[in-house]
Design a protein around this nucleic acid. Sequence first.
RNA 1: GCCCGGAUGGCGGAAUCGGUAGACGCGCCGGUCUCAAACACCGGUGGGGCAACCCAUCCCGGUUCGAUCCCGGGUCCGGGUACCA
Length: 923
Amino acid sequence: MEYNHKNIESKWQQYWKDNATYKTEIDESRPKFYVLDMFPYPSGAGLHVGHPLGYIASDIYSRFKRLQGFNVLHPMGYDAYGLPAEQYAIQTGQHPEITTKVNIDRYRSQLDKIGFCYDWDREVRTCNPDYYKWTQWAFIQMFNSYYDTKVQSARPVSELIYHFEKYGSKDIHAACSKDLEFTADEWKAMDDKAKSDTLMNYRIAYLGNTMVNWCPKLGTVLANDEVSEGVSIRGGYPVEQKLMYQWCLRVSAYAQRLLDGLEKVDWTDSLKETQRNWIGRSEGAEMKFKIADSDVELEIFTTRADTVFGVTFMVLAPESAYVDMVTTPDHKAEVEAYIAAIKHKTERERMIDKKVTGVFTGSYAINPLTGEKIPVWVSDYVLAGYGTGAIMAVPAHDSRDYSFARRFDLPIIPLIEGADVSEESFDAKSGKMMNSKGPELDLNGLDVKDAIAATKKFISEKGIGKVKVNYRLRDAIFSRQRYWGEPFPVYYKDGIPMMMDESQLPLQLPEVDKFLPTETGEPPLGRAKNWKTPEGYPIELCTMPGFAGSSAYYLRYMDPKNDKELVSKKANDYWKNVDLYIGGTEHATGHLIYSRFWNKFLYDLGKVCKDEPFSKLINQGMVQGRSNFVYRIKDTNTFVSYGLKDNYDVTPIHVDVNIVSNDILDTEAFRAWRPEFKDAEFIFENGKYMCGWAVEKMSKSMFNVVNPDDIVERYGADTLRLYEMFLGPLEQSKPWDTNGIDGVNRFLRKLWNLFYKGDTLLVTDGEPTKEELKSIHKLIKKVTADIENFSFNTSISAFMICVNELTQLKCHNREVLSQLVVLLAPFAPHVCEELWHILGNDTTVCDAVWPVHNEEYLKEDNVTYAVSFNGKARYNIEVPADMSSDDVQKIALANEAAAKWIDGKNIVKIIVVPRKIVNVVIK
RNA sequence: GCCCGGAUGGCGGAAUCGGUAGACGCGCCGGUCUCAAACACCGGUGGGGCAACCCAUCCCGGUUCGAUCCCGGGUCCGGGUACCA
C-alpha cells in the first residue's frame, strides 16, 4: 500500500464528521481547556496560505491537550459584520447578508480541507439575530450602569438616581464626562429631558457630544484604533475631527483595571507594552491659573509640577472652551481667523504640516507661585481631548514649548543646573533645580523627583491644584453611520433616548432599498420603512461598530444555543475563560482592549466568573508572499534568465508564482498566462529559465498568492500542516516559500515506509530494543516540551530525526510505532488516524493517551568531555556517564604531558564543568 | 522622537542553563537505479589551507578558563506609537 493522501484525508474527515468526534460537552470529571482562534472576517478573496497558520497551531495544541486528558473547547465562528461586504453592496446592490453567506461557505470549505478539530456545533456568526441579541443586551446593561470609582465596579444607574434624590451630586464617586454639581432639590426639579441629559454624564453607554474621527469618504465615524496616521485603516481615506452627538462606551473608566489586569495574564511583553502605551497612564498634577482682571481660572494638567517657575506662557487648544472666555475684544478677530484656518485642515494635513502656529488671546494668567503675569496663547499643538485642553508652557524643559517660544520670541528660563537651553530644550526628568524660589516655595537644589513631590504637596495644601492621574485611553465611540452592523435597541421618546425592553430583543436589522445614506444625510437605516416602535417612536438610525460583536464572542461559544442568557452560569463556571488565545498582533489596541473592557463589565455584573478573558495569548507572525520575477529585455518580447540579466537592460515583471517551481519558470504556462506573452522568447541558463524573487506582502497584485486548496490537492492537508509549522517560529513573520515542501512530504512517506513495504505490513510484535526505546523516548521528551513552548518547527525536526533513526534501525515494532503515531497525531491527524487503525486500534487516535517519557531509556553509557587548554579544546575523552567530576579531572591531569607538549607551559589549574568540558589553564 | 523586537552558511532556521556554532529541511555537488529523464535511495556540503591548523554568529570594547548567549557603546533592518504636556 502506498501513502495516498487523498483517500486517507477524505476518509477520515468524513469519519470525524459522521461520528461527531470533536463534539464537546461539559464533563465535570475532566479538567477543561479552552483554545480559541481569533475568528476571521470572511472576505471575498477566500483564505490564502498565510491565514491558517494560527489555526494550525491552535489545532495542534488542542489535539495535544485532548490527548493529555483535558476536555478541550475549540470552537470557530465568523466576525461577519464589516465594511467590505457593505461597500460591495453599495456597488452591486447585492445584500451584504448574501455576500457574507457566500464568503462564509467558501471559508468553511477551505477550513474543512485542512482537518481542524473544531466543534462546529458551537459556531457563531456576529450577524445572526440569535447572536447579536446578546450584543444588544450587553449594550442595554451598559446604558443602565455607571462606574463607581470608589468600589471600582459598574453599578446600576438606579443607585445613582437614589443618591441624587437624597443628596444631589454631593459625595458621588462616579466616572463621568464632566464634573457636575447640583442639589437634591435641583435634581428633583429637573424635567425628564434634563434628568436624561444629566444621567448621560455617568452612564457607561452614553450619548455624548464628542470630537470624533469623521471619515467623509466612508460616511462614518471611526474609533481611534480604526485610524492611523490621519487616514482610515480600511481604505486609507482621510479622516477629520468633528464634534458629533454619538453613542460612546466609557472605556476610560476601566483604564486602571485594564492596566492592572495585564499583570495577571501570560501575554508577550511587547503586546502588554503596546497596551500600556495605549492606555497611557501618566501621573501629574492639575493646577489652576487665575486670569488677570477676570473670574476665569485656567485648569491645566502637567507631569512636571516642578517646573512652575519656568512657565513663561500658557497655551489653549483651539477647540477649548477657555478660548472664548479669555480672548479680549481687540484680539477676537485674529483668534477667530486662526481657529477657522485650523478647522479647515484635515487631521492628516495637521500632521504633515509641522509648522509652529499660534495666536495671542490678549489675556494674561497669573503664576500661582510667583505672582507673575504670563501671556495666554492659542495653538493647535495643544490637544483638546487630553488633560484639560490647556497647558502651562515651560520652554526650557519641553521641546514643543521650546519651538513655540522660539517662533514667537517668548522668554525661556532654564530651571535645571547645567542644562544648556540655547539650542534645544532639556526634556530629561533629572538634575538639580535652580531659578525656582518663590515667596512661599523654594525648590532650588532639590532633585527633579523630589521637586515634583514637593510642588504637588504644596499646591494641594494651598488649594492651587491637586494630584491627578491622566490616561490617554479615550472612551470608545460606538455609533457608525452604516447599514451592515447591529441596530441599537434604542428609540427616542420626545427626543429622550430610551432602551427597548429585553423581551423585544433581538431588534432585527431592517430591509432598505439602498445601502447609502438618505438624501437628507441620515444613515442608511433612515431608508427603512416603519423603523419605529409599535407606539410609533423613532428608532436609532446608527448601527454598532465592528468591535461590538467581537467583544464577547468567546463567552457565547461556551453556550451558543442558549436563548435565555448570553452564557449560563453552569457553562461559564465550567469553561471559565480562554486558556489559550491565538491571533494577530494587529488587534492589540482594538479588539483586545474592547474585549477586556467588555468582559470586566460583565464580571462587575456577576455574569462571568473571570475578570480577564484571555489567560495566555500567542501572536502568530504574518506570512508574507514570495514573489517571482521575469526579466524582459527593454522594448522586446524576450525574457532573460535571472543569472544573465545583468548583461542586458531589463525590466523586472511580476510573474504568477503558481507557474514557477523552485524558481524555474514553466515557459509554456508563461506563454499561456497572458496574451501579451504568447510569443515570448527566452534566453536560458543551463537550459532553464530562472526567476528572481523578493519578499512582499501576499496579494493578488503581486501574483504571489498561494491558495491552501492547491497545496492540499497536490500534497495533502497533513503536509500543508507540517510545512506551515516547519517554516519557522510561530510568532515570527516569514515569507511563504513552497520550495521546501517536498521535504516534509518525503518525511510522511518515510513514516509510511516504517509500516509498509509495497503491500506487506511490516509491523512486528515483541519487545522494543534499547536503541528503539531511546529514540522514541527522546522524541516524547522533545515533542512534549516543544508543544508547550509552541516550538512546533523544532518538534517537526525531531520527528524527522526519529523516523530516520527508526528506519536505520529497521524498527517496525508495534509499541514504538504506536507511540510515534500518537505523538504525531496533533500535527498530521489524517495519516496518523490511518496508521493508528493499521496498528489494529478500533478507537480513534484522538482518544489515545499522550505518552510520557522515561529518563531511564535516555541515559548515555559514556559521556564525552572535551579537554581544553585556556578554553581551547584539544582532545576529547570518553568516560563512563556516572564518573565523578574529580575522576574526570584526574584523567585530564594524566594528560599533563600533552599539555606540556602544546606550548611547553605549566598547568595552573583544571576546571571541570559538569557534563561538557574539562578546561585546563596553562601559563 | 519614544517604546518593543531582530541581525547566525546560497536559503528557512537550530543551539530552551554561558560549554565542541550551523540540528532539521531546502538548494547545490557526487553516486546507485534508468536507454534517458523524473521519482526514489546513498554520500558530501560555512570559508580558507596539500596538511597540521586557521578564520567565522552585524561592528567595537568588557566580564569569563570559555560568549550566538551576560554587560557597555555603535550600525542596519522590522514592528508599534506620537504634538498625550
